[in-house]
Design a protein around this nucleic acid. Structure first.
Lengths: 343, 343
DNA sequence: TTGAAAGCGATACCAG
DNA sequence: CTGGTATCGCTTTCAA
C-alpha cells in the first residue's frame, strides 16, 4: 500500500475513478470520453467536470488492446540522418504527410532506419503494433522491410518505387520520363556533350533518371560516353565533387543533367569555381523543383515532381488500407519541365 | 464467427496459442519470451520452435498495459520542418540520441510540433502514454509543453535552456561564454566595428549568444551600435540576408559574429558577393562547429559546442528519470574557440 | 520449473 | 440512457 506511491508519477486516474467522482459507472464515463451520442447532457457535464478535476487522460495501451488501433502512423526513413536532414524533398514530404495525417486526427512519428541493426529494431517496433500504418521512403537496394510489413499485415505505402518486384503499393514520380524531358531540352538547346550526375544506383529513382538520360541521347542519336557519367548520393557536396571530376575528364562538356536539385546546386558552385558560365558554357538541368532551385544563381531549370499530388496519393492509399481495403496498386505521377535560367 | 476474419490481417497469434502448440501454459511461454532464467532448456527450445512456426510477436499494448513501459522515447521538435531539416545541429543530435537510446534497447521516434494545434496533439500523444520519456528541443518563447510533461509525470529533458523558469532538467552549451569568446577573439584581431547576426530572440540560445556579444564589447569599452545587430532564424538564407543588410547600413564593418555556422555560411556568401575579402576586410566567427564549418571558403572560425557530451548528458539524465530517480538538474557544458581561416 | 489465476484500463454488448 | 460484465493479450504472484 504505502509502497505504491513511493516514486514516479502518482498513478494516473482511471475511468473507474472518474466515474466514482462523477457518481456514474465507468461505462458511462467511457461514453462521454468517446463522444458517444447516448449520454444525457446532464451526466455528460458532470462527468466532464470530474475529468477536468482529476486531469484524466485515457490510457492508450488499454484502449489499443481492445480497439486494436493506435491512431499513429510512422514515416520510416532508410537513410542516414545527415542525408535526410539536408534534402528538401524529405522536408516537404514530412510536412505534407504530417498535415494529411493530422487531418485524420492521427499522430505522425518519424523513425530512422539505417544499418541492419536499426532495421531490425524498426521492424520489431512496427510489428509489435506501435502504429496503424507505415509510409516507407528512400529504399535502397532490395530492402526486406516492406515485405516484412505486408506479411505482418501492416498497412504500408512506399514513396518511390522499390527495386525488384513491388509487392507493396507505391507512389512515385515519372522519373524516367522526367529525365528524358530534361535531356531532350538540353539537346534542343544545341548541347551535344551532355554529362549526367546520377543518384545512388542502388535506388530505383537513381537508375530511372539515368535511364531517362540514356533514352534521350539514344533517340537523338548522340553517342554515349562512359566518362560523361558520374554517380552521386543526392547531397550538395556530391554534386560539387561529381561535377569537378566531370570537368577534369571532359573539359568540353556543354550540358549536364543532374539527378537532384540539391546536387545541381553543388554542381553550379563547382562550375562557377571552374570559371564556366551557366548556361552559356554549360547548361544545367536539375530534378525535383525544390524550393532552392529558385535561389541558386542562375536559377535552376529543373524537372518538377508534383509533390502535393504525391503526398495526397500516398496518404489516400494508406488511409484506404488502414480502413480495411487492401490491394496492391501503384501510382506514377507525371513530371514536367520548369524553365529557369540555368539552361 | 465467420465475420472475424473478413478483412485485414489474419489475427496474430497470442501467447496462449503458442503455448498450445508447444504444449505448455501461456505463463511459461511468457517466461521464455522475456528470457526469464526459470525455464528448462528443453521447454525453452520447444517454445522457441513454436514461436518461430507461428511467427509470434508480443502485443505491445497488452504488455504495456501491465508493465507500464513502452520502450520508446520521443524526440520532440518545436520547429517547422524546413528549418529542422537544414540544420546540422539537429542531424547530429538525432544521430546521437538515437544511438544512445538504441543501446538501451529502446526505440527513438521523432515528433514534430509546430503550430498550436500540433502542440496539443503532441501533448496528448505523450500524456496518453505512447512513450517512456521525452527529449524536447528547440523551444521558442515560453513553451507550455515541458511544464505539461512534468506535471503529467513524464520523464523529460530539454536540450537548450528554456526561457523563463526552468522547471525541467536541461542540458545546454555555455552560449553566452562562447559568444564572448568569439567576440573577444575578433577584438584581439584588432577589429573594432564588429557586427552580429543573432539567432531568434524568442529562444534562450538566441539571447544568450547576443548577450555574450555585448559582454565582450562592453568589457573592451567598444560602444555598441544598434545598426550593427541583425536578427536571423539560424537558416543559411537568413545569414545571407542579414549580412547584406548589415553591409548596406555599415559599409565599414570589419568583423561579424554570427550566431550559427549555417547562418555564417550564408553570410560568407553574401560577403563574397559584395566583394569583401574574408578575413582581410571582414573577419567572421560562427557558432556550433558544424561539419560544414570546415568546408566553407574560407574555413570558418567558430565556437565549438561539445555535442557528444551534450548528447551523453541528455541521455543519462533521461534514463535516470525513466529509471525512477527524479530531480531537476541542469548541465551547462563549456564551449571553445576553433580557429580556422575566417578570422 | 510449471500452471492457475488475478489483474492492467478501456471498450462494447446486453439487459434493464 | 445507464450499469454490469466479458474481453483484449500479457505479466506476475502464489501454489503445486
Amino acid at each position: 500500500m504505502a509502497l505504491k506511491s513511493m516514486r514516479g508519477a502518482p498513478r494516473r486516474p482511471t475511468l473507474e475513478e472518474v466515474g466514482a467522482v462523477a457518481g456514474v459507472s465507468r461505462a458511462t464515463v467511457s461514453r462521454v470520453v468517446n463522444g458517444s451520442p447516448k449520454a444525457s447532457p446532464a451526466v455528460r457535464a458532470e462527468v466532464e467536470r470530474a475529468i477536468a478535476r482529476l486531469g484524466y487522460v485515457p490510457n492508450r495501451a488499454a484502449r489499443t488492446l481492445v480497439t486494436r488501433r493506435t491512431d499513429t502512423i510512422a514515416l520510416v526513413v532508410s537513410e542516414p540522418e545527415a542525408r535526410v536532414f539536408g534534402d528538401p524533398f524529405f522536408a516537404a514530404l514530412v510536412r505534407g504527410i504530417g498535415a494529411a495525417v493530422s487531418m485524420k486526427d492521427l499522430q505522425l512519428v518519424l523513425v530512422m532506419a539505417q544499418g541492419t541493426r536499426e532495421h531490425e529494431k524498426v521492424e520489431r517496433y512496427v510489428r509489435q503494433g506501435h502504429v496503424d500504418g507505415v509510409v516507407l521512403m528512400s529504399l535502397h537496394g532490395e530492402d526486406p522491410l516492406p515485405g516484412a510489413f505486408v506479411e505482418a499485415g501492416i498497412p504500408t505505402v512506399l514513396v518511390g518505387r522499390p527495386k525488384g518486384d513491388p509487392v507493396v503499393p507505391f507512389v512515385d514520380a515519372d522519373n524516367r520520363g522526367g529525365a528524358r524531358l530534361a535531356v531532350q531540352f538540353l539537346i534542343a538547346r544545341r548541347r551535344r556533350r551532355i554529362a549526367t550526375i546520377t543518384g545512388p544506383l542502388d535506388m530505383c529513382v537513381g537508375v530511372d533518371r539515368f535511364e531517362g538520360y540514356r533514352d534521350a541521347l539514344t533517340a537523338a542519336h548522340i553517342p554515349q560516353r562512359k566518362g560523361l557519367v558520374q554517380g552521386g548520393d543526392f547531397t550538395e557536396e556530391a554534386g560539387h565533387v561529381a561535377l569537378t571530376r566531370l570537368l577534369e575528364k571532359n573539359p568540353d562538356i556543354d550540358g549536364v543533367f543532374v539527378a537532384s536539385d540539391l546536387m545541381a546546386a553543388g554542381a553550379l558552385q563547382a562550375l562557377r569555381a571552374a570559371g564556366r558560365r551557366v548556361p552559356q558554357d554549360v547548361a544545367v538541368v536539375g530534378f525535383d523543383d525544390a524550393p532552392l532551385a529558385r535561389h541558386t544563381s542562375p536559377a535552376l531549370t529543373t524537372i518538377r515532381q508534383p509533390l502535393d499530388e504525391m503526398v495526397a496519393q500516398t496518404s489516400e492509399m494508406l488511409f484506404r488500407q488502414v480502413a480495411g481495403a487492401s490491394r496492391t496498386e501503384h501510382v506514377i505521377v507525371p513530371t514536367s519541365l520548369i524553365k529557369r535560367k540555368s539552361a
